[in-house]
Nucleic acid binder design. Structure first.
Lengths: 346, 346
DNA sequence: TTTAGCACTCAGCACAATAGAGTGCTAACA
DNA sequence: TGTTAGCACTCTATTGTGCTGAGTGCTAAA
C-alpha cells in the first residue's frame, strides 16, 4: 500500500467518521487536497476496494470503510488525539468528588465516558479474587430479630436479618460475635467449614440455629464476590448519532444492551489485561453485532485488574477520541477507587 | 350516555387496544355484533365524537378513543380481569425465591411486571421515614484503615472505610464502639449531635478524628434514607408495541425514561396512598407525556407505604390487565419484602 | 502516470394516478 | 321515530413514473 493510497484511505475514514455519508472522489479531492484530480483518486479507490479496505453501498454511492479499513486506520493511520485541558479537568473533578461508595464512582465514570464520546458507556466490575473473612457482628434489632453483618478482607460488607429465639439476648449475641471472630479471622470458606464443624458446634451448640444462618451469610458473601456487575450509561445519548434515525437499528441496539451476559463477554475478552483494546465490527466473534465496535481497557486496584471500562458505538466511531478518553479515564479511575476504598480524601 | 353508546365506545376502546388501528363502523358491526347496521353505529359514533369520547385522526379513518374516552372506559366500562392461574403462580414463585437483599426483590418485581404486561415497569422505593441509630461497629482492616459500620433502626446497614492513625489498635476500636453504642442507641440525628458535643468529645477527645468520621457516616446514613431509588425494567420489551415503529417515538420514550426525577414524580403523585391509580395521557399534569399512561400502586411494609410500583405504557394500553397485575403484584410484594427484611423463609 | 471527458448506474425525490377504507347524508323502511 | 341501504365524497397509503444529481468506470489524450 503506497503512500497516496494511505492518504486516500485516511481521508475516507476520517470523512465518513465525521459525516456518516459515503465519501466520493470529488469530496476527497476538494477537502483533503492531495494534489491530484478526482479521477486519480477514483483509480486509487478502485484499488483500495479490491484490497478490501473500503466498500460501496451501491453503484452510484461513494465509498465506506470496511472493517478491514477501520482496522488499518486504527493500527497505522490514526493520529493519537490528546484530551483538551477542559476534558481532563472534567474527568479529574468528577472523579475527585467524594463518593459514598464505589458504585457511585462507577456510575460517574460511565456518565463521563458517554458524555465525552456520545456513545454508550459500560463499566464492568469483576471481583474475582477470593477474599477472606474478617469480622462478624451480631446485632439485636428486636426481641426476635438479629442482624448479621459480615465484613470481608477486601472491604466488602454484607448484612442480613435473621430470626432468633426470644431467649437470646444482646449479651449472648455479643459473646457469639466474639467467639466467632476469634475463631474465624482470616480464614477462607474451606477453613471455616472445617473449624466450624470441629470446634464451634461443640462449643456453642446452644446456638446452632444462629450459627447456621451466620455461616450461610458468610458463605454467600464469599460467593457473591464472583458476581460481575455492569453499569451502563448514555444510552439515550447515543441515539443522537445519525445511524439511529432508523427504528430497527435502535431496537437491535437496545436488544444488545439488555443482554447483560453479552456485554460482560464483550468487556472480558481474552486480551483485555493491559492497555486499550479495540474490537471492530465482526471482529467480535460469535455475536451478531457487526455494526458496532467496542473500545475497552482494564482498570486496576493496587496493580491488580478488577474490572473493565468500555465504550460501545457504531463501527463509524471516533476511535482516536474514544481511545484517548478510555485510556485517561481508566488511569484516573484506578486512583479514585483506591482513594474511596482506603477511606482517604473525604 | 345511553346503553348502546356505551357498547359502541367499549367496542372502539377494546378494538383499538387490541389492534392499534383506528376502528371503523363496519368493524364494530361485524366483530362486536350489537345487532345494528354500520350506519346506525356511524350515527352513534358521530355523537360520541361530539361528546368528546372519541376522535378521528383524519376524515377517512376510523375512530380512536380520546383521553376522555379511555377515562370513561376505565371508570365505567372496563371489566375486571382476573389473573390466570399461571400468572399468579409465576408471580408467587418469583417473589418467593430467596433473595440476597431487597434490591433483588425489586428487580424481580420489575421484570415480572414488564414480562406480564409488555410495557415498561418502574419500581420506586421511598424510605422517607426518619429512622434511628441502632448500632455502630468499628473494625480494624489494616494498621491504618478502619471500617465503620452503622446499623439503622429500620434494618439499613451502611459502611465506609476511614483512615486511622497507626497508634490506634483493635482494642481501642472495641472500646470506642462500645461507648458510642451505649451513648447513642435509639437517638436521631439532632439528639446525637447534642449528645456528642456534650459528652463524647470530652470523654473521648483522644479519638476526635475517628469520632468525626463516624459521625459523618451516621449523618450520611440518616440522610441517605431520603433518597428515592427507581428500578426500571422491560424497556426493550415495550418496543414490540406497534407505536414504536417510529424512531422518533422511541427516542422521546427513552428520553422520558432517562429522567429519573420525572419518573419519581410520576410514581409519587398525590393520591398514591391507596389502591391502584391510573393516569391517562395529559391527565399527568405539567409533563409532556400525553401519549403515555401510568398505572401505579403503593406497596406496604407492616401497613406503611414504603414505595410505589408502576407501569408506563402508551395510552392505548391494556388497562384491565395492567391493573390486575399491578394490584396482585403489590400485595405479594409487601409480603415478600416483609419476609426478606425479617429474615424469614430462607 | 495523470487527467479530462463521457456514458452509465442508481438512490432519492416529486408527482400523479389509483385503490381502499371510512365517513356523512339522504331517502326509504319498519 | 329510530334504523338502514345506498351513494357520493374525502383522505391516506400505495404504486408507478420520470427526473435529478452524485458518483462511478472507462477511454483516450496529455
Amino acid at each position: 500500500m503506497d503512500d497516496r493510497k494511505q492518504k486516500v484511505l485516511l481521508a475516507i475514514v476520517q470523512d465518513f467518521i465525521a459525516t456518516a455519508e459515503p465519501v466520493g472522489s470529488r469530496t476527497i479531492a476538494k477537502k483533503y487536497k492531495l494534489g491530484v484530480s478526482p479521477a486519480t483518486i477514483r483509480n486509487e479507490m478502485a484499488d483500495l476496494e479490491e484490497m478490501g479496505y473500503i466498500e460501496q453501498p451501491h453503484t452510484s454511492a461513494g465509498r465506506v470503510p470496511s472493517v478491514r479499513g477501520y482496522r488499518y486506520y486504527v493500527d497505522y493511520l490514526m493520529k493519537k488525539r490528546e484530551l483538551t485541558r477542559e476534558e481532563e479537568e472534567l474527568i479529574r473533578s468528577q472523579l475527585e468528588k467524594k463518593a459514598r461508595d464505589v458504585g457511585k464512582v462507577f456510575q460517574r465514570t460511565g456518565n463521563l465516558l458517554s458524555q465525552l464520546t456520545s456513545y454508550t458507556s459500560m463499566v464492568l466490575t469483576q471481583q474475582r479474587r477470593p477474599s477472606k473473612f474478617k469480622h462478624i457482628q451480631l446485632v439485636s434489632m428486636s426481641p426476635s430479630q438479629t442482624m448479621v453483618i459480615v465484613v470481608m478482607d477486601n472491604g466488602a460488607v454484607h448484612h442480613r436479618m435473621i430470626e432468633t429465639p426470644e431467649s437470646i439476648i444482646a449479651s449472648d449475641l455479643e459473646t457469639l460475635s466474639k467467639v466467632l471472630n476469634a475463631k474465624l479471622q482470616g480464614l477462607n470458606m474451606d477453613a471455616i467449614k472445617f473449624t466450624l464443624l470441629k470446634e464451634l458446634y461443640f462449643e456453642l451448640s446452644r446456638h446452632k440455629h444462629i450459627l447456621d444462618l451466620s455461616l450461610e451469610l458468610i458463605q454467600d458473601s464469599l460467593s457473591l464476590e464472583e458476581e460481575d456487575k455492569i453499569y451502563l450509561g448514555g444510552v439515550f445519548n447515543m441515539l443522537t448519532q445519525p445511524e439511529f434515525h432508523n427504528a430497527e437499528r435502535i431496537k437491535t441496539m437496545l436488544g444488545i444492551l439488555e443482554q447483560e451476559e453479552l456485554l460482560c463477554e464483550l468487556l472480558s475478552g481474552e486480551n483485555m489485561d493491559k492497555g486499550v483494546t479495540i474490537r471492530i465490527g465482526d471482529e467480535i466473534k460469535d455475536y451478531d453485532i457487526k455494526d458496532y465496535s467496542v473500545v475497552a481497557a482494564p482498570y486496576l486496584l493496587r496493580g491488580r485488574k478488577i474490572g473493565t471500562v468500555g465504550v460501545l458505538g457504531p463501527t463509524r466511531m471516533d476511535y482516536a477520541k474514544v481511545i484517548s478518553v478510555v485510556d485517561f479515564l481508566t488511569q484516573n479511575l484506578s486512583v479514585a477507587l483506591d482513594r474511596v476504598l482506603r477511606g482517604r480524601g473525604r
